[in-house]
Nucleic acid binder design. Sequence first.
DNA 1: GTGAAAGCGCTAACAA
DNA 2: TTGTTAGCGCTTTCAC
Lengths: 351, 351
Amino acid sequence: MTGLRSAPEKVPARRRSGRAPTIHDVALAAGVSKSAVSLAIRNQRGVSEATREHILSVAQELGYRSNVWARSLVQGRTGLVGVLLQDLGNSYHRDLTFGVEDTAVENDLRLVIAHGRRDPHRMQAELDSLLALGVEGVVIVSSWVPPQSLERIGRRVPLVVVGRLPERVSGIDTVANHDELGAKLAVEHLVSLGHTRIAHLTGSSRPAAMHRRQAFSEIVRNLLPGIEPQIEGPEHLDAAIKYLIFQLQEEASAPTAVFTQNDRIAADLVGACLDAGLRIPEQLSVVGYDNSSVCRMLRPQLTSVDQPRTEMGRMALEMLLERIGGRIEDRHITIAPSLEVRASTAAPRNG
Amino acid sequence: MTGLRSAPEKVPARRRSGRAPTIHDVALAAGVSKSAVSLAIRNQRGVSEATREHILSVAQELGYRSNVWARSLVQGRTGLVGVLLQDLGNSYHRDLTFGVEDTAVENDLRLVIAHGRRDPHRMQAELDSLLALGVEGVVIVSSWVPPQSLERIGRRVPLVVVGRLPERVSGIDTVANHDELGAKLAVEHLVSLGHTRIAHLTGSSRPAAMHRRQAFSEIVRNLLPGIEPQIEGPEHLDAAIKYLIFQLQEEASAPTAVFTQNDRIAADLVGACLDAGLRIPEQLSVVGYDNSSVCRMLRPQLTSVDQPRTEMGRMALEMLLERIGGRIEDRHITIAPSLEVRASTAAPRNG
DNA sequence: GTGAAAGCGCTAACAA
DNA sequence: TTGTTAGCGCTTTCAC
């Protein structure tokens, strides 16, 4: 305009108004070079303290924010890690995420949460989406992603699965609950109370459920020789619950305790029992799995197997970091659960 | 190596092995120019059908994935929208997110979920983090972000808050539940059953809670002239519950029904009552708020005010799109809840 | 219909 | 200590 600045004005006019200020704008305003600004904002040495302060104050004034995309484009890394959750509204996933988040923050990584909505297709889509975002690794809190997908994606980016996969997948790490131990804890607790007729109620034939179920059978056979373990489900869960209630009402040989695959199923069972006029734990002891927040909301409060969720999330991200750091061999960790005893279990009436 | 390709080899050697294939690699392999590849993969016209197919198959073969960062760097937009959740493990947030997700997908936007962990500081940090990622807008599912932060950030990027803010903030949109109507539905239901001594149990003095509380008082005064509305809380919630139970056990003038600020508090109350040997709904009717998943797990199942959560999420993202599309004036939407009647409410014993 | 060249905002290697 | 230069991978004119 004034003609005073004779140097070719390379900055398009529109930039100064509409767009966010760039490193270039800051350099111009501060009267230094782009690289000086770059060094200053990243707190790197190479600029004098005075210059840095000046640059920073100018940047502040202009409302400058560095463009992460441009930076990661040139650096070849994004500083992003993803966590793919099977289901948002659920305290198991929440607590796990806590552990992942904490560890991510401690390691200067930004966490991007994706939501699979309990839908294998969406899960796959979200996983692709995370990759497209350029995450440097993903923690998958779900065992629903098919092994071949895991293997394929695991070749591109480090992957840690929290959960029990149907099979080992080479190239990826896993953190899993020790389902066998969980079943053992539950059954031992019930046996120690004097129960002998114990049933298992399950709603799934996925690996984790199967492990609990098999461990249940085994421990029952060990601890209660001569008694055949009773299993209900996984099909027709509603019918299974109805049948259990029928047994309790009509048959002297009905189970006196039920160990369920998870808390949700336990809650359904407890609700149905109460609706049928059965008293818990007097007429039936119930043990859940997951120690979710509903355990303390129900009456009686639910005895449940507890997984150290936050700790599992933390371990998952640590394993991911190891992978990003170059570990080659696979790691598979199994975490021991514990039993949280509450009011839904007691000695059997005629024990 | 062979010296046959005499043109200066500009691609560094390391790229071809370690790094992900780029548009350049695809162009080289397909024997076309970079721009041809760019057009082909974006399905733009400008390349012949044959060329496109060829390029696509080569890209597929190489396992090419376009680099979102590079693309958005040049296009000046990221196609990202953020949703900041106050709390992950919670069906209210889950269902809201469903609505947001669906609408985002329909509009070709990628959703990035951030988690505030019920901590205002983290909430603020996550919001900054989302901005740094370059989101084009954010849906904040929380009313905990301070107005001045909202205003500041709202100047950089469109913002929609789902929840009831302590004050209007210029430049941002809101989607809120019609708390007054919710309270009205609850009280009218109880009055229609014959209740006259109705208490309100609240655990917060935040705007949404206050609106419910005030609306409660008003509707009680309208419908039951001469009766002073009884309010317990928001301080010392545990003590308030104990006091209510004391009243029920000792005083003839005890309330026969309680309307609570949310389901969690209702669950606490119901649990405490059952622990004290009180029967629900015979001795006390209880109405919750949020119609969360626990309502159907409790016994008796909980009558609760239901917010159309998925719909609210959808509206929030639609409003965000309007803003991104250029709307200037603020919009504030209030959504009508409905009442889900279940077994925790009944006519009072001596009604 | 296709290719060459410029440049998005930034960093990193180098030169001054 | 500072400024210059050359890209990161991609899109987008603009010639051909």
